[in-house]
Each structure stands twice: as C-alpha cells, then as structure tokens.
Simulated assay, not measured.
Amino acid sequence: MATIKDVAAVAGVSFTTVSHVVNNSRPVSADVRAKVELAIRELNYVPSAVARSLKARSTATVGLLVPNGTNPYFAELARGVEDACAAKGYCVFFCNSDDDPGKQQSYLRVLREKRIDGLIVASAGDDAVLARALSDASEPIVVVDRNIEGLNADLVQIDHERGAWLATRHLLKLGHVRIGCITGPVTTAVSAMRVHGFLRALAQRGIEIAEGAIVESDFTGAGGYQAAQRLFDTVRPTGIFAGNDMMGIGALRAAAERGIAVPTDCSIIGFDDIELGHYTYPSLSTVGRSVRALGEMAAHTLIERISGIAKAAGTPMRRRVVAPRLLARESTGPWSGAAGETSLAAA
C-alpha cells in the first residue's frame, strides 16, 4: 500500500506538501497540486484516517449500540441514525449486543478504542453496570428507547406508559373488557412502563386484572406467539395488547393457527409502529411514532452535542420524550358480545 512518502517521491515534493494538498491545510501552487494529485491517482494512495483524526481530533464517526439487530425496530432505528449522520458527514459503527450485557461491554470498549466522536446506545439491560462503564466517557452520549438509570446523558424515547394506555383504551372503547397483555422482560424499564399504562387504562374503567392475564415474553415474534398461546389456553381474551409489534405479529400467527378470527373473535394491538406491521394480514393496529424519525432525532441530538461540545459541556442533558399516536388498522374491531362482562376472569 502506498504511503504519503511514496507520493512525495513520485511528485518530487516533500511529504509535508503532500499533507497540505490532501488536507487543504495550507495554500499550494496549482502546478505543485497537480503533480501531487497525479501521483495520488497513479499510486492509488488512500490517506490514513487515523493520522488525519489525530491531527483534527475528530474521526467523523459515531457508534450505535443496540440490543437486538434482528428486531425490525432497531433496524429501522439504525437506518434513521445512519441517514441523519451521513447527511452531516459522519459514518456509523453499528454494534449488536444480542441482549447480552457482557457483549455490550466488549463493544463499548472497541468503540471507545476507535476514538468515536459520540455514541448512541440502547441498553441491553444491567443498567447499573452500563452506567458505570459510561460514566467517565469523554465523548457525548445519547440514550435512545430505554433510559439508563444513573447515567447523565441526553435521552430520546417514546412515551411508553402513555402509548400502552392509548392501546388499551382503544380496545376498551371497542367494547373489549377481557383483555390480555403480552409484556417484554419484566426486568426492563420499558416493559414496566408499558404494563403500567395497560393497568392504568383498565383501572380507569374499574376492571380488575385476573391471574394469568399478563404474560411475560421477550420482545420477539416467537415469544409473542408462545405468550398468545398461553392466553388463548387460559384467559381466552377478546383483546390482546402486545408490548411491541413483533410480539403482536406472533400473536396474529397464534390466532390464525387456532382458527381465531382477528378482529372478529379477538382484537390485537401492538406498540412501536414498525413498517412490517403495515404488511401483516390483517394489518396490525399499533401505537407509536416513526421509528426511523426517532433514530434521526437521536442522531441530530448527538451531532448537536458533538459540534458544540466545548460550549455545551456544562449544559443540562435533554430529555426528548415523543408523544405516541394510535394507528388503528385491521387487527382491531368492536366486540359484539361485551355486554355484561366486567372483569378479566378466565371464561
């Protein structure tokens, strides 16, 4: 691989002159610039990004750490981050922790060794360990989707509690009172907030939750499928609130296998508004906002912090909580047999 000294030798100039041409750091005559550029093309010389970053004290790269790269939610989030960063001249290192706190820690070390300019992170759990690992970070950090307790960082997330309340209220307005809930891991703050919103909507209607009406899963389609099977075996709900769209899609599959018509026999609503929900059959009702837009917001927040880091170092961290909206599609409909039902007790 050609070096800057090789270019200098072919062009007949000093390697510092080559550096000035590459980095536009000092005026160079048109004749000398032409010689250097010709030598660069002939040798197929690629400037060292490491050397340039040391000089500029910037790598023009940011890290994105997510807990599950196979989940369409995080794929769409990553696309939003990438689009917004590319528009500002930043490249993105994408890292998937597979919901493994240990792998998450390893990726954090690698990203920081790469001297990234900033980091966007969605927690994979074990927030106390993650907060300690990031507490002494010199680069700006934006937390997205899941807040990390104990970490002083900018935050971008949906209003999880209100979204779950909206979804459950939608089912109640359609006449459903025997409603099951498929939640993500109970150890995550996101799951806790969404379950709280579900329970709040029921409490406002005076509906008591019965044992077995809330089933824990893992935010995956397979998990939603298995959880829905349990609900159909016990509670036999006329409505299901799934804690994310992937679990809602799994619930649609479980209903179809049992010959349970959606929404005639059971309405199903998810959370997140991932693009895939538009194309299920029936299309999945959901609550949320554009996931890609959330990624763009996280990237803009980070770039604003990077670009003004010296000036903004002492400014308060921002909490950008996005209001969700209800998107009623084909998977929810009125329950004609709701009269007289007052609880979620198993039928």
Rank of each mutant, 00 (worst) to 15 (best):
P140R: 01
A2Y: 04
V177G: 03
I274V: 15
L202T: 04
S191F: 04
D136N: 08
S29N: 13
V177R: 03
D273K: 13
F93G: 10
A228M: 06
R115W: 05
I120A: 10
T16W: 11
T70E: 13
E211T: 09
L151F: 00
M246N: 10
D126A: 10
T332K: 03
G337L: 12
I116S: 01
D273P: 09
A133M: 01
A338V: 09
D159P: 05
V32K: 07
A164K: 03
D218N: 04
K173P: 09
L155H: 00
P263L: 06
E37I: 08
L108H: 02
W335T: 03
R52N: 08
S106H: 12
I116E: 04
V195H: 09
Y107I: 09
H170Y: 06
R115P: 03
R253A: 15
A8Q: 06
A167T: 02
R146E: 01
N71H: 13
R112K: 12
I214T: 10
Q104K: 10
V62Y: 07
R253Y: 09
S307K: 14
S53T: 09
A293L: 14
I207V: 14
S267A: 08
L172H: 04
A84I: 10
A323V: 15
R253P: 04
V322H: 12
A122W: 02
H20I: 03
S14G: 15
L64C: 12
R318F: 06
A313D: 14
D154C: 07
A293W: 08
A345K: 02
I207S: 08
F232Q: 02
G63V: 03
L108F: 09
D154F: 02
G180N: 09
L202E: 07
E113T: 13
P324W: 05
F198N: 02
V144N: 01
V62E: 07
E216K: 07
S29M: 10
